[in-house]
Computed example of a mutant assay.
Amino acid sequence: MSRASRAADDLVAQHHASGHTFRAGGIRGFTLDQGEGPPVVCLHGVPTSSFLYRKLVPELAALGFRGVAPDFPGAGLGARPLAFDYTWSGLARWTDRAMDALGIDRCHLVVHDVGGPVGFEWAITRPERVLSLTALDTLVDVASYRPPPSMWPFTVPVAGEAWLPVLRPPVSRRFFRRVGLADGSSLTDAEVDAHFALITRQDAGRAFLRTMRGFEPTAAKQAFYYEGLASRPYPAQVVWARDDPILGLPRLRAVLDALGVGFPTVLAGRHYLQEEQAPAIAAAVAELAGA
């Protein structure tokens, strides 16, 4: 085992020690959970996990919130059951059970990437449980969504299985830094490696592939999001990375339109804004919660 691999394993072990496990819907879950006060639940996308929120959760706790970042089934340190619905709808139903299991009645919700469609569905079906919504670099106009070229092979049987072994160091490091970070040196190789280890380590990425193939980019789902979010009873905001190469200005405009938000909070960064702008994101969540 290389020194970088050992360092990544050490980071995964530290991440595991900083959270706790729980059971929701009969499935073992894992979550970061720090602080006292109103819960702020942070939902991740792909190919990430709760590890992406390891900097934001302590920032939220320091501002007087309970920061919670669960792993979806199939990602991170959660279970990867074969008999599970890995569609956005299935993940939203599991999220509702996870809220119950974690003792969360109402929360401020933070969503990112395809955690957006999942979180939107949960928020639309459970509006009474949402205090506010913060959308970070996500998508709502799903009918026209197509994964970027680097992710598209994962949606195709056989191609995804062949492409997944390619996306490992050093290729994964170049990919993560190019699409995710404004300053590539802001994360060590071990931190980047830990991100990908948490996707593939338990089952060689099989559940991740099922999640990628569970996307629901349909006109009906898009209409559901727009109609449901338009009638929400809670405040919302959009926080966006200035130079996101994955979800650019058209996706930003769609999210603003769906939420009825006039303008975004734009922060310097790329797609994985949580890595470089955790204090600013926490401040934005706190400001919306106070409003």
Rank of each mutant, 00 (worst) to 15 (best):
M1P: 06
S5M: 14
A8W: 01
V12A: 12
Q14R: 13
G19P: 04
I27K: 04
I27G: 06
G29C: 11
F30C: 09
D33P: 01
Q34T: 07
G37C: 07
T48I: 08
Y53L: 06
Y53M: 12
E59D: 10
L63W: 01
R66V: 14
A75N: 07
G78P: 11
A79C: 08
R80S: 13
P81L: 01
L82Q: 10
A83I: 07
T87I: 11
L102F: 11
L102A: 03
V114G: 01
V114C: 06
G115N: 02
G116S: 13
V130W: 03
L131P: 00
S132F: 14
L133F: 08
P148T: 14
W163K: 00
L167P: 02
R168Q: 14
R168I: 06
R173Q: 13
G180H: 06
G184Y: 06
S186N: 04
L187F: 07
T188N: 12
T188F: 04
A190N: 07
H195E: 07
A204F: 04
L209R: 02
E216W: 13
P217W: 15
A219K: 09
A219C: 03
E227V: 14
A236M: 00
Q237A: 08
R242P: 01
R253Y: 10
V255W: 05
L256M: 04
F263G: 07
T265P: 00
G269W: 01
R270Q: 09
E276V: 06
E276S: 00
Q277W: 01
A278Q: 07
A278I: 08
A280K: 08
A282Y: 02
V285L: 02
A291R: 11
